[in-house]
Amino acid sequence: MAVNRRDFLKLAGAGVGSLVLAAGHTEPAAAESTPEEARRHPSMLYDTTLCVGCRACQNACRNWNETTAELNSEGMYDMPTDLSGSTWTIIKLYEEETAEDADAPGIFSFIKRNCMHCLDPACVSACTVGAMQKSPEGPVIYDVNRCFGCRYCMVACPYKVPRYQWGTTTPLVQKCTFCFGYVQPEGVVDDKNRLAQGLGPSCVEACPTGALSWGPREEMLEKAHTRIKSAPGKYYEDRVYGEHEAGGTLQLVLSHVPFTKLGLPTLDPRPLPSLTDPLNWSVPGIILGVGGLMSAIYVNRSQAEFKTKED
């Protein structure tokens, strides 16, 4: 899948011809997966009705991935308020106050945010250098050695997931890896890769209430739809968020309040990369079209010049 630096230097050293070759080799194995292919991909289901907001998942993520704890303005460790370069998953609380009595508990819901691990991810399509990759196993992972920090992935992600390490001079883009670790050279397994060890993500393991479930995508979807069927009206629009959003995601969400209230955007089922793919395909057309047109105009004009000179 990925070529490590030494291989790459060997290839690059062989000249421009092999540059093309090198590029062919360094191309991530898969840019996207179809819902069909994703059926067996590992998937996570989060159910707002079961979440009690204990944040065990948030801390488990920090512990396993060794992300630094966040400091508040007084320099003390404090609860983060959003995803960041060192917070890859977060529990947020949405609350709606009832109009009559502000003190009475209104409708509320927790929401766990992390990378949705899209089937056809915008960040992977956007990444200039192919640092964001769709692994053949499913999770969307990142190559720390490739990224040069253009931050187009951050602009492109419809869920605003990738975050940057703003405070350092050698920053990386950071996001949930589904505990799959970073992209590694052929044959090397990241010690942060829990999936390779036959474990699920650390957040799922930590969840005490069953609000998080883990398994192949088709099983998670089935589980979600069974929950919806067994309690009609309990879940918002009887819909599983992530089943179709922007082509579908491996992270699925069941909620009893509207998804937009939880910061989950309303997205067309069309995968976002399909919007820009035609642009890059059009490049040969531009070369032929514009090149041909300009050549024709030039020939035509210079012949006219020649004629006027003859006369």
Binding site: F8, A12, L19, A22, A23, T26, E27, P28, A31, V124, S125, A126, C127, T128, V129, G130, A131, R146, C150, Y152, P273, T276, D277, L279, N280, V283
Partner: peptide, 11 residues
């Protein structure tokens, strides 16, 4: 050296 021909930014 690292190509992603899907990327508009790459182009």
């Amino acid at each position: 050296f690292y190509w992603n021909h899907h990327s508009v930014m790459f182009e």
